Measured scan of single mutants.
Amino acid sequence: MTYKLILNGKTLKGETTTEAVDAATAEKVFKQYANDNGSDGEWTYDDATKTFTVTE
């Protein structure tokens, strides 16, 4: 399945997607991506749209 990440950071904004077997796997990928790019904030997940959002 395709999962989407929306970044609403102070310095990093945008979207990216990943293919993953489940939401937990996608979350690990996205959290590593956000960490690698210095983005940290409040995470939410919408199962209906398969979208993670991180807001700083």
Rank of each mutant, 00 (worst) to 15 (best):
T17K: 07
T51R: 02
K13W: 11
F30W: 01
T17I: 07
A48L: 11
E15N: 06
A20G: 03
K4W: 11
A24W: 09
M1N: 13
A24S: 09
Y45A: 01
T25I: 06
V54E: 02
Q32A: 12
S39Y: 15
N35Q: 14
Y3S: 02
V21R: 11
F52W: 06
I6S: 03
Y3Q: 02
T49Y: 04
S39K: 09
D46A: 03
S39H: 15
I6M: 05
A24D: 08
D40R: 12
T53W: 08
D47V: 08
V29W: 14
N35V: 14
T16P: 02
F52T: 00
E27F: 15
E42C: 12
K28T: 07
N37W: 14
K28V: 09
F52C: 00
S39M: 15
D22F: 02
L7H: 03
D36P: 04
T2H: 06
T51P: 01
E56F: 14
D36F: 12
F52D: 00
Q32S: 07
T2A: 05
Y45D: 00
Y45M: 01
G14V: 15
A48S: 11
Y3A: 02
T18E: 03
L5T: 02
G38V: 07
T25D: 07
T51Q: 03
T55R: 06
Y45V: 01
L5Q: 01
V54G: 01
G9I: 10
A23N: 05
E19T: 14
T55S: 08
G38N: 10
G38F: 15
E56P: 11
Y3C: 04
I6W: 04
G38R: 06
F30L: 04
F52G: 00
D46P: 00
K31T: 04
V29N: 05
T16H: 14
D40Q: 13
K13F: 10
A24V: 08
I6V: 10
T51N: 01
K4D: 03
E42R: 09
Y45L: 01
A23S: 08
L12Q: 11
D47W: 08
N35M: 15
D46S: 05
G14L: 15
W43S: 01
T44Y: 10
E56R: 05
A48E: 12
S39A: 15
E15Q: 10
T25E: 13
L5D: 02
A20R: 02
A26L: 01
D36C: 11
T11S: 11
K4H: 12
F30M: 02
N37G: 06
A34Y: 08
V21Y: 11
K4Y: 14
L12W: 14
K31P: 00
Y3T: 02
L12Y: 15
G41K: 04
N35F: 15
T53Y: 12
N35D: 10
T17V: 08
A48R: 10
T55E: 06
E42Q: 10
Q32M: 09
L12K: 11
A48V: 10
D36I: 12
E19D: 09
G9C: 14
N8F: 13
A24G: 07
E27M: 14
G9S: 09
N35G: 09
V21N: 09
K31S: 04
N37R: 14
Y45P: 00
Y33G: 01
A26Q: 01
T53N: 04
I6Q: 04
E15I: 12
A20N: 02
T44F: 11
F30G: 00
D46N: 08
G9V: 10
K28Q: 11
L5G: 01
F52K: 00
D36V: 10
T11V: 12
Y3V: 02
V29D: 04
G38H: 09
M1Q: 13
L7W: 11
V54I: 12
K10W: 10
K4T: 14
A26R: 00
V29R: 08
T25N: 07
K10R: 12
D22E: 03
N37Y: 13
I6Y: 06
D36T: 09
G41C: 07
G9N: 06
T11H: 13
T51I: 04
G9F: 15
G41S: 04
T11Q: 09
N35W: 14
E27P: 01
D36E: 13
G14M: 15
K10M: 11
D22S: 06
K4E: 03
E42K: 09
A24C: 13
E19Y: 15
G14F: 15
A34K: 03
N35L: 15
A26E: 00
K4C: 07
T18Q: 04
A23G: 04
T44K: 08
E27C: 14
Y45C: 00
T44Q: 08
A24I: 10
F30Q: 00
A48T: 11
E27N: 04
A24M: 10
A48D: 10
E42A: 09
T55D: 06
D47S: 11
T53V: 08
K13Y: 11
V54C: 10
Y3H: 03
T17D: 04
E27D: 03
L12M: 13
T49H: 05
V21W: 12
T53D: 01
N8A: 09
T11Y: 13
K13L: 08
L7Y: 10
I6G: 01
K4P: 02
T51V: 05
D22N: 08
A24R: 09
G41D: 04
N35Y: 14
T11A: 09
A48Y: 09
K13I: 10
L7V: 08
D40F: 15
V21D: 09
K31L: 06
T17Y: 13
G38W: 11
D22P: 00
A23F: 13
K4A: 04
K10C: 14
D22C: 04
G41F: 12
F52I: 00
T51A: 03
V29K: 08
S39D: 05
V21F: 12
E19V: 15
T49C: 04
D47N: 08
V29E: 06
K10T: 12
Y33A: 03
D47C: 07
E56G: 08
D40V: 14
K13M: 09
T53G: 02
V21I: 13
W43I: 03
I6A: 03
